[in-house]
Design a protein around this nucleic acid. Structure first.
Lengths: 160, 160
DNA sequence: TGCATTTCGTTGCATCTGCAACATGTAGGA
DNA sequence: TCCTACATGTTGCAGATGCAACGAAATGCA
């Protein structure tokens, strides 16, 4: 039994870890669905479209696809097709890139900017409602634990 | 700070809420990808297949699709096609249901049971690695906050 | 009983996705 | 220069997905 103890102890997550894993999966899925449903209900596009529009707006200037793919956590070919669809709706446009003729720059159109704002008007209250069960201090604690879990630098990381 | 002045207070989530929302999305996505990659690397199926197999194993007896769809958080037509694929691999089988001739029961096959175990051998260490940055007490705190956020009864909910 | 309503699960179709292969351009030497 | 290696982004194809419409059985009720 000796060896078995060691082995299973090192390959099976502890109960608290498993509980947290399951909670993370279930809750994040449920909240994502809640917000996604609100957007669909308002006949607006996906959250992914929002993040592209927002990232471009935040950049404040035309941006290379490769520089967008990283923060968005998506693969190049996924972004390529996402941009195809968004360009068809004139939310974004591909413009030539002088420095590197292989690629191009993605520019936000006026229509894209307007849609981003329109989406936020639905997104914000939906997020608020999804998060209604926790208080602000709890939210801070949660964000702190999550960032630690993810090994991500906590933006605005207070003190601690 | 009382009413916090109307408009923005009621329609825009507070900063802590937004921070928690973003952290939740990013971290859960990253961890899911980590585990999904480990399974793919081992040429094993998706996590969704695992959850179906596990749910059937846990039930201990053939189960109606509708009773599976709820805990799995998926729509009937999604489950229908998922079962199509799994049945093709002989992991699960549809058997007649005497009480209700519309539906049927989903039964776990020996092959399905074996695969579930084989997947756990990869899933468990991948989960452990994904969660390596937090301690057990932190994991408990995290699970508690998440369940509160989700409004879900905390399974094994300690005290509090 | 007869008939409308609801529930359970599936399916046709259009769209979306993942993957590997691809075209095109850049960078670094010999 | 030429040649190889690499980076950037797109695409053909097979498979997966969402949605609305569907068939069939169960339920409710006049």
């Amino acid at each position: 039994m000796q060896q078995t103890h060691l082995k299973s102890a090192s390959s099976t997550p502890s109960d608290p870890i498993q509980r947290a894993w399951i909670a993370l999966g279930r809750v994040s899925q449920a909240l994502q669905l809640h917000v996604a449903a609100a957007l669909k209900e308002a006949k607006l596009p996906d959250l992914q479209w929002y993040t592209v529009l927002w990232e471009l707006e935040r950049a404040g200037k035309p941006t290379r696809p490769k520089d967008l793919a990283v923060p968005l956590f998506i693969l190049p070919y996924q972004l390529s097709r996402l941009v195809d669809r968004m360009e068809k709706e004139e939310l974004v446009s591909r413009i030539d890139c002088e420095e590197d003729k292989r690629g191009h720059l993605l520019a936000l159109t006026a229509k894209g900017l307007a849609l981003r704002k329109q989406m936020w008007a639905v997104y914000a209250p939906a997020m608020q409602q999804a998060m209604r069960r926790i208080t602000d201090p709890e939210a801070l604690k949660l964000a702190e634990l999550l960032y630690k879990l993810g090994g991500i630098d906590n933006p605005h990381g207070d003190q601690s």
